[in-house]
Design a protein around this nucleic acid. Structure first.
Lengths: 181, 181
DNA sequence: GTCTATACTCCGATAGAC
DNA sequence: GTCTATCGGAGTATAGAC
């Protein structure tokens, strides 16, 4: 009843790319953990980059959905809160959190990846969705920072002091305040 | 009247490490840009890691100075503002901005680097320097995010819309508000 | 779908001449 | 202080048997 090999490759790759970085993770390592040889991976993915592509596309479509949702709503305080909660939930969900985290940590290595460039554009659009045309520089910075705040819990904070749940609630709170500026 | 070779290596390495990532930058590239061979680099630095070490140690001592300064002051609103401005200036100054930026972008690649671990500890200490013992989770997250805000201008924001000076002022403002929470 | 075997390239690093 | 030459290893990727 185990998953198919393709999914297991994605899973292992995502974890190692996140922990060690994309370039520092070799296909040999991934194959070894999976219990096959390097060559076997090439049956499932054309190249190393193809593994990345399969991961980041999931994230892109998630962001596109969220953007469409935001645009379909009135720009009220209630929408803001619901948006922040949805975004935070997406970052947190086991499936997508991993991908978001991987992206944060590998911006340099993947800086020319076409899908990543699209993801960045969508994030910018999301950040400015609650910004009025005549907004001040301070407001623009605040709003951009709000999205980042939702990712920040996992590595800005020392997990010894606060529980995961506390951190989650706190980042949502901080993000909302930044958006309300 | 040009600088000595050692400084030029640091300068080229810093730029390329920041733009492309540490692992993606080879010594051959650095040597080529400098106009020498790889082997020549080894006269100036024992290993590739040694180049990194020479860079990050500058940043560590800068943070240590700042931490000592903060601790020598009363925890007043005036100190807060002066601290934020000093920190922002340090991030901004051509010399150190590059190093800070390099560190942000290579956290994964350098995650086991002893000096980087120290730098992270100092940053945590700085962030918590304005946090009362009984502070809420929201306050802790805000304060951690404040330091990050001072770095954020360069890559969260689209430089087309706002001037560098406007972004600088805005990040200082946002950081102060986060610290005052 | 997975294997062995291998091609080819690049890496960081060293030895030793100049 | 810089060079040429080279080492050993690891990387991605492919060919072809099973």
């Amino acid at each position: 009843m185990r998953e198919d090999t393709r999914s297991r490759i994605q899973e292992i790759a995502l974890r190692r790319f996140t922990e060690q970085g994309y370039e520092a993770t070799s296909l040999r390592e991934i194959a070894e953990e999976l219990g096959v040889t390097k060559a076997a991976l090439y049956y499932h993915f054309k190249t190393k980059d193809d593994i990345v592509a399969s991961l980041v596309e999931q994230r892109l479509s998630e962001l596109e959905e969220l953007l469409a949702w935001v645009r379909s709503r009135p720009k009220t305080a209630r929408t803001r809160r619901e948006f922040v909660e949805r975004y935070a939930a997406g970052v947190r969900a086991t499936r997508h959190h991993g991908i978001a985290h991987f992206l944060e940590r590998n911006q340099t290595a993947l800086r020319d990846h076409p899908t990543l460039i699209e993801i960045r554009e969508r994030l910018m659009e999301l950040a400015s969705e609650f910004t009025e045309p005549g907004a001040s520089a301070t407001q623009r910075v605040s709003h951009s920072l709000a999205l980042f705040a939702l990712h920040s819990g996992k590595w800005l904070m020392n997990e010894d002091e606060l529980s995961e749940e506390e951190i989650h609630q706190a980042t949502v709170e901080v993000a909302l305040r930044l958006l309300e500026t």
